Computed example of a mutant assay.
Amino acid sequence: MNQVLVLNSGSSSIKYRLIDMDDRARLADGTVERIGESAGSVADHAAGMDVVLGALKGRLDRSRLAAVGHRVVHGGDRFRGPTLIDDEVCDAIRELIPLAPLHNPANLTLIEAARSAFPDTPQVAVFDTAFHQTLPDYAYTYAIPKEWRTDLGVRRYGFHGTSHQYVSRRAAAMLGREPEEVNMIVLHLGNGASVCAVREGKSVDTSMGMTPLEGLVMGTRSGDLDPAVSAYIARQSGQSAEQIDQTLNKASGLLALAGSNDMRDVDTAAAKGEEAARLALDVYCYRIRKYIGAYLAALGRVDAVAFTAGVGENSATVRAGALLGLEHLGISVSPKRNAQESKQERYISPYWAQTAVLVVPTDEEIEIADQALQVLGAQP
């Protein structure tokens, strides 16, 4: 058995990939979208699993399927690594729904559908939060009442862990070193965005917090915000906590500043001189730059800065803007290298740079597949 089916579910989507792990080839992949939405035809993630099975018909040989790997958004402080799924694990994921009310229910529904579809195949959960379980207590602790921390589980958890783990390992390989020998800052910049400080292969700080709202400016999320703003808006406008939360998550960020949550649109508009887009781009890059400075201080020595995900991999403007003015700290980009379009891993820093600046395309699906086989005692 040498195949792994990876199911990467969002709140309203399922990305799937069938991988031959002998040569890491994609045998099939695709996306099921608009799940549970009025404009879509897929009622829930269980129905989405039926769509996936239909798409895999004739391509999937069950006798060769070693595992089904699932992305699960929130593992709280219970899961420190990939975990073989059983009824107890499903119960734990269910108990963690209050920490991820949009994603964990969808993840759980898909897991249950996959267990039904493949009753004899091991199923493995890979948690977005697991990579960040190595954060020291002073990095994950908020200065809030003890009962909030202990009884309600309020702390920094971090997200995008699967991507940060994959990219940090690939970046170390590009440097010709083992992950345990490298300190780096990984910038996962997509519609959701986060920064991770990685010391010797382990996450020691990250910008997202208890939820994915904290940290960088994102496509529709505000990122860091004075906590008193929510109370102020509630008093002044009469909006509920739920309404404000929805606005901060779904109607803020680039969308609020520039009218689009797509960085390609913002970049184009800024180049045409549109002031709102210019401001949005400046705010976006400035927030990244602040976090880079903070994590330089946290790590002490930084061997590499790695850009990944949709914006990080494709926007030369953002990469240059995020590192603007850091030359005196040994971090800079080569304009020629940075401008070159490529889907490959590459250096964009000058040859003489003290700190390597890299673009590393992320691959969460292959990381999930690798971790699934690791749980089963196989070597990818």
Rank of each mutant, 00 (worst) to 15 (best):
L5M: 06
S11Q: 01
S13N: 13
Y16F: 13
R17V: 14
R17M: 13
L18H: 02
M21R: 05
D44Q: 02
A47N: 08
G48A: 11
V52N: 03
R62G: 15
R62A: 12
A66D: 09
H74T: 10
F79A: 10
T83E: 14
I93L: 04
I93V: 14
E95S: 15
I111Q: 01
P122F: 00
A125L: 11
A125T: 04
A130R: 02
A130K: 06
T134R: 03
T141G: 09
K146W: 05
W148E: 12
Y157W: 00
H160D: 09
L175W: 00
E178C: 06
E180W: 09
E181L: 09
L189I: 15
E200P: 01
S203F: 08
G209P: 09
T211R: 02
T211I: 12
G215K: 05
M218S: 00
T220L: 05
E242G: 08
I244S: 02
D245G: 04
D245E: 11
G253Y: 01
L255H: 01
A256P: 05
L257I: 14
G259T: 12
N261Y: 08
R264C: 10
A270W: 02
K272S: 15
K272L: 15
A276L: 11
L281E: 09
Y286N: 05
I292K: 00
A294E: 12
A298E: 13
R301A: 15
A309L: 11
E313G: 01
R319P: 13
G321W: 02
L323H: 00
L324Y: 06
L326Y: 00
I331N: 07
P335F: 02
R346M: 12
Y347L: 14
I348F: 00
W352I: 15
A353P: 13
Q354V: 12
A378E: 15
